[in-house]
Structures are given as structure tokens and as C-alpha cells.
Computed example of a mutant assay.
Amino acid sequence: MVAQSLFPTLAPTIEWRDGDLLLLDQTRLPHEIVVEHVADAAAVWRAIHELRVRGAPAIGVAAAYGLCVAMQDARDLPLTQFRAELERRAGWLDTARPTAVNLSWGLRRMLQCARACNASDSKALYEALVDEAKQIHAEDQALCEGIGMHGLPLIEPGSGVLTHCNAGALATTGLGTATAPIYAAHREGIVFKVFADETRPLLQGARLTVFELQQAGVDVTLIVDSAAASIMSHGLVDLVIVGTDRVAANGDFANKIGTLSVAIAANYYGIPFYVACPSSTLDFRTPTGAQIEIEERREEEVTSLAGQPIAPRAINARNPAFDVTPHELVTGFITERGIVKAPFERSLRGFFAAEGNAA
């Protein structure tokens, strides 16, 4: 696998090995590399909810395999009962995180597979589900390669690229989304510089993005979130590429909290702002960003750092995990089929209306 060759000391984000689901625990990075064996439905739900597996594409793959894990103890049930349990358990897994559309997308695709399958018994249906999950996994890797290929021309020699949060190899099972053009340019020998926001409160930029880019030999500099606009003002950024957890039909998109601030600053300084968007992250059922549900996480993530309190005791805090950036601030969406430009509502549907996310 190309992605794995970039990080020879890092375990795969997700691995299916002889019926076992193995997840790289991203809450332990960069200081420890710990692979978790996920053995039942509750463990799958916790791994997604607690961000041990994270990033929209990786969540979609984990959800597909996770549903297989959830159904392993049901293979001896009568087929009708197996199908009923499949629907019920998929619905429960879908509650793990509300904002990333890939969770519901992966589970919905698995259910569609089951409904279309004419298996004679539960064991045969289970094997069909495993095959579908493996296909979703392979497609994710191919999507990353396609995004890298189409985004590569955007990165010119000597340019500065800014990214936010982690939309890298750790957020997928391949080259990443926002990082795919970065890795593609690096493979081509292009000399350029990456600035990575730390991404408070959970520091996915500091813990994950700079870790994987450094491992791959990319020239990367870590900055605090509040320094992004200042770095832009000094002419050090020529291009912004971020990932996304959900793209609405009109091109509004949800990404890690702080993305909106980066987009506003880029717009002010006239810097192209691109969103790396695999087709699995499109949600044509959601008309605009106003309808995207934003996950609100625990206050302790804001008031503590590495388990140590950093704020006054009993202080009120808000912790939205994502924000929504309006499509007017987006230069284009880098997809596996090409770069999509405005008007986004028409052009996104033109590219992907047949992908299964259309209303």
C-alpha cells in the first residue's frame, strides 16, 4: 500500500484480519502506537465516539467493518431475525457521532447491500457484508489517490500550504484527503512548505498532522490556531487545503472547529481556499449548512489539557467540535474526479448525483 510505505513505523489506521477489527488508537499518538482489537458492537461505538478512530473517511470504513463485528454473534440466528438485528444495531452505531456523514453513509451502504442480497442463511449474508466492507475500504484508498492526483497541480515549487486539523492518512485508510495533494507533490520532488494549525481543543494538528507529515519527510511547521491569519498576512501562505466531515447540497461544509476562521482569513488575504472532498462526504439530503447537526463535546476537553486543568474550576465552557463554512468562501472542492468550482449546487450534483448521497 502506498500510504503505508510513507509511514513504515506506523500501524494501519484500520485493519480487518481474519474476522478481527484492529484500530490504531489515535488518542495515544504521537507518543504511543497502540492497536486496539475491537471485539463487539459496544467497543466499536466507543472507539468512534471517543475519537480512537476519527476522520470522516476512516469513520465510514470503521462503521462498515464495525457492523460486521456487531453481527458476529448473530450468525446462527434465523435469516429474518438476523436482518432485523442488523437494522437495529446499525441504527444504534449511527448514534456514535452526529456530524460526520460518512458514519451514516457507511452503515446505509451496508444495509443496502443486505437488502439486495439473496443469501439463503445468516452466515452467507454475513459473508456478503464482510465483502461489502472490504470494498468500501478499497474504495477509500482509491478516493485518496484520486484527490491527490487532481490536487497535485495546485502545489507549486516554493509555495506555502496551510491545513487545519487532521485530514491526513490517519483520518482515512489511504493518503488522506487534504494531505493527499501534499503527499503527491512530495513524491514528485516538489519543494514546498506546510503550515499546520494545532487545532484546539484536542490538538489533532499538533498530535497527528505534523506527526505523519514529519514521518513522511514533508517540510512542516506547527503553528497555534490563532497564528494562521498572521502567517497569511506575511505572505507565507499561497494555498489552504482542509478536509470536511459533511458537504451540504449548496457547498456549505462542516469541518473541525476553527475552519471557518481560516476561511475568512484566507478570503481577506485573497488566498485560494480548497476543500478535499471524497464523494462519500457529500450529503445532498442536507440543503445547506444550516441543517448540519454540530456535535457538542464535553466541557473538560476545553478546560483541561493532557488531563491537567487549565481554567478556573466550575467555569462554563462551550465545545462545538465543528463549524460550518459557507460555500461563498470556497474556491473549489478537490474530489477524486476533479476539482469542482462554483456554482456548487449544480456542479456537485453534476459530478456526483449518481453516487448514492443524492436526495
Rank of each mutant, 00 (worst) to 15 (best):
L10W: 06
L260M: 08
D225C: 01
T80S: 13
H137L: 02
Q112S: 14
E296I: 11
L129W: 06
Q81S: 08
A3H: 05
E127M: 11
S104D: 07
A64R: 02
D140L: 07
A248K: 12
N267F: 15
L67R: 00
L107D: 03
T331C: 00
W16T: 03
R285I: 01
E127G: 02
L154V: 12
F82T: 03
L93E: 08
L239F: 04
L107F: 12
F284C: 10
I33G: 00
L213T: 13
P30E: 06
G332M: 13
G243P: 13
T80N: 14
L24W: 00
T281A: 14
P320C: 06
E87I: 13
R108K: 02
T244L: 12
A359W: 08
T99Q: 07
L107Q: 03
F284N: 07
G148L: 04
L79C: 03
L152G: 00
P57F: 09
P153S: 02
I33R: 03
A311L: 13
V2K: 12
Q291K: 10
T331P: 04
G19W: 05
V218K: 05
G148I: 09
E293Y: 04
A128K: 04
A353V: 15
L125M: 14
G217C: 09
P30A: 01
V262H: 06
A63T: 04
M232I: 08
Y269G: 03
P98A: 09
L29N: 05
H49K: 15
A321S: 07
T179Q: 12
K341W: 13
A317V: 14
A43H: 08
E293F: 01
P8N: 09
L260F: 15
R349G: 10
A11V: 05
V324N: 06
E299C: 00
L107W: 11
F322G: 02
E36D: 15
A169N: 04
T163I: 15
I334D: 01
R28D: 04
V34K: 04
H234M: 10
L143H: 14
N255E: 05
Q291G: 05
Q135G: 03
P312V: 12
R89T: 11
R52C: 07
I231S: 01
T172S: 14
L170V: 12
V191W: 02
E198H: 00
T303I: 09
R297H: 14
A342D: 12
S347P: 02
D252Q: 07
M110W: 12
E300N: 11
F352M: 11
A167G: 13
L24N: 00
S261D: 15
V130Q: 02
E198N: 00
D131I: 11
Y269H: 15
H37M: 10
E293V: 12
G60K: 02
R52F: 11
Y269Q: 09
P98C: 08
G338P: 11
G243H: 14
E296M: 09
V101Y: 05
L67K: 06
E85W: 00
R298F: 05
G258S: 09
T13M: 03
E299T: 01
R83G: 03
Q308T: 11
L143Y: 12
A354C: 10
P272T: 12
P309F: 07
E345L: 03
